[in-house]
Design a protein around this nucleic acid. Structure first.
Lengths: 185, 185, 185, 185
DNA sequence: AATGAATGAGCTTTCATTCAT
DNA sequence: AATGAATGAAAGCTCATTCAT
């Protein structure tokens, strides 16, 4: 059914990312992930020996890389921090729109809904810190003092996370674009 | 009409609100809710005929009322919109701190983690709209034009939701206070 | 909701008879019977102290009386046993047709599906014997020897029970009419 | 491909067939079936993904095959249709007698007691049609016109179903033998 | 690396019944 | 006679995981 047959591991990760993002870690069973991805029952534990938790972290990391790329694309040609933020928000709004249904930040959706698993919190923290640092670096490049740059970057992430909550709730990407429009430092 | 001990229904609601907020809708089983509240299994469906979903909505509504009161307390004596927002954030930071563990917005934590239940989204929407309208009303009272007031109120909610995500992740209420400090319109 | 308000007991019996006939004794819960009849939860055990089993026997007895009357009506003006049987089958076919869905013999449907309750078998036996005796009496009146009359009556009941099974299965009353047409002794 | 011990699936089917036949579909719980068969709870849904309903249909189909064989054995050496019917009834009477307790037609007992499950009716219909066709084929072989053969076969099935109701009720196989003795066309 | 069967604890929900009023 | 709350056992089903091959 797969053309040259993508590696099983990748199929699992991408399917899991999509389903976890839709319903949260505790809201999706391995049965559904396996059935959706067409991967047989026994195969999962070869690729993810620690089972569901392993798979969720892999899925979040994979999604995080995509987000990182979006950030980079947004700021790459920006000539001011505000412009970079605005471009980022517009790209995220588009990212929101292409999903089959309204969904939030891929990492938050997967990991932060299960903080009974302690591993998840530190994984999320590392991912978020990476994004913040990345945005801050662009801030410095665009003339913001190093210390302020980190604060601004964190504020950007807060705005995006909050806007994503609202966007999912209202089933429209407007809030995400609006925070981009309104952002000033 | 009122037994000497606290009504079973209320015990269930408050226990459920706490546990759902801690672990999300799909992360808590009725078994735990029943065991924690000391209510026998069969009683739940007497008070909540639709079971877990009913209980979750009741729990979120109950929590929403508490939030509404905090908003009212924050803005009641405020002499400017900015002051009200700052007070609100400080109150929410304190609300964050008194929980046994880092937890997010009570309503988001309960309902938005189960998008698979369609009823949840509209319930969350109504609650959020109530808060926004309430904040906007205070904005008008404090001199903001009616149309702008609603936008500002929505931005406040976005900031708070985003800050709450960050606060839970970092296990500190600092982000919540910071958005209160930095808020200008 | 009831015009001059039929006695609660009767409402319960008739509702239970209908639902039990549709889904069998074990296939209907008291909750559904109570909800359908609009009778409050606590009332059942006043009228039927032994609960569900009591109600089922009362419902079957009530239905049996109706059947007895149909038998009487069919044979009353019959001028031969065969004519009586044929009329009976045609009346039962009509009885079959007026139900909302294809359903079997009211007594069999209610009681014989739960022979884990020993009381049910003897109750069914008494009802069936009453019908057989009744048909046999008409057989005697129409010139059949007493001993043969009972055998013939039992055969009629067997044919009807079997035809009812087939009719319910095929969702048509044809088999019931056909046994009436084909019956000869 | 075959474990040394009997396959779990078969154990489940045969245990279920026996228990469902005794108490009807709604009268037996999975717990009892699992406990009786010694199969652990989780295994059932591996073999019967749709659970209880799947199992019941498999059990009825398995029982139907046994019935089919009895029909074949009865008619195989019969030299007239009447003789075949009589032999069939005597075999079924013996089949009735060897059960631990009085029980009806295995297929009717399992499936027709749960009309609320739509799949059951069509499954029963197919099984019954198979039997009727089989009997009719022997009827043709024994000199009955094709059109009449089907009617006669259906009448045989009606007689057997009815006799089975009566036999179970009276706890004796006499009615089954009697319809065999009395059958003429 | 891959796989289908097996596993039993746990899930949400429904059950018939009892009780205090 | 009537009633809503309470009750816990049992219902059917799903869970993440382990195992033998």
């Amino acid at each position: 059914m797969q053309s040259p047959r993508r590696p099983t591991r990748d199929i699992l990760i991408e399917t899991a990312a999509r389903l976890f993002r839709r319903s949260g870690y505790h809201g999706v069973g391995l049965t559904e992930i396996l059935a959706t991805s067409g991967v047989p029952k026994g195969s999962l534990y070869h690729h993810f020996p620690n089972g569901k938790a392993d798979l969720a972290i892999a899925a979040a990391s994979w999604a995080a890389t995509g987000m990182f790329q979006i950030i980079e694309d947004a700021f790459q040609h920006a000539e001011s921090f505000e412009e970079g933020v605005k471009t980022l928000c517009y790209k995220l709004a588009k990212f929101f729109d292409i999903s089959e249904q309204a969904m939030g930040c891929p990492v938050s959706s997967i990991l932060s809904q299960a903080d009974d698993i302690p591993e998840f919190r530190s994984a999320t923290g590392q991912i978020f810190d990476g994004w913040i640092e990345h945005i801050a670096r662009h801030g410095c490049r665009l003339g913001i003092a190093e210390k302020q740059a980190r604060d601004q970057a964190e504020l950007v992430l807060i705005l995006i996370q909050g806007a994503w909550v609202m966007a999912r709730l209202r089933d429209t990407s407007d809030p995400i674009r609006r925070v981009g429009d309104q952002f000033t430092r």
